[in-house]
């Protein structure tokens, strides 16, 4: 199982940009301890949310044939908290991608207001680390991850059907 830190994609332009949202709810267990009686989303989990948004964007650009690994957090800056009831939005854009790595720029928003910036570097480990003993299968883009993008595309298809029906 994997901890997924985005609820769904709301925009996806292959090879260019992706946006995902995450609704913060008090039912999430980590908020009971972070902090007791003062629940706020840890910035590290917002970085992970951005990494998942941008990582799927980068993976899709190579048809999910590469293992895309978060290699470096170039910038992570947050100006505000997110608390239960807020909706977080992660907007990621590919600045550069080649066979070895990819660089993404991203903004984090809360209920429509920008609250942070997270810029990342991903490594294509099949290409960059041939000496590592890696499994043969793609261990990053599991079914769970791919489904997130599938759900977004299914939603688009349904919208098209509705439009066609009008």
């Amino acid at each position: 199982m994997r901890w997924i830190w985005i609820d769904r994609f709301v925009e996806f332009t292959p090879g260019e940009s992706a946006s995902a949202v995450k609704n913060v709810t008090l039912a999430e267990e980590y908020l009971q301890d972070h902090f007791p009686n003062y629940p706020v989303v840890p910035p590290s989990l917002m970085i992970e949310g951005m990494a998942q948004t941008a990582g799927i964007l980068v993976g899709e650009a190579r048809d999910f044939t590469e293992n895309v690994i978060l290699a470096k957090i170039r910038v992570a800056r947050f100006d505000d908290y997110a608390v239960p009831g807020d909706q977080l939005r992660y907007d990621a854009r590919i600045e550069m991608i080649d066979s070895v790595c990819a660089q993404t720029l991203g903004t984090v928003s809360k209920n429509g207001d920008r609250i942070g910036q997270v810029d990342l570097i991903f490594s294509h480990v099949n290409q960059a680390s041939k000496t590592l003993d890696l499994p043969d299968h793609n261990f990053v883009f599991t079914e769970q991850f791919i489904r997130l993008l599938g759900a977004f595309r299914d939603g688009l298809a349904r919208q098209d059907d509705d439009t066609d029906g009008k």
Binding site: A71, K72, R74, E95, M96, V100, C101, Q103, I121, S123
Partner: peptide, 9 residues
Amino acid sequence: SIDFLDIVF
């Protein structure tokens, strides 16, 4: 190694 990429960018 990854820092060298970052520095280049």
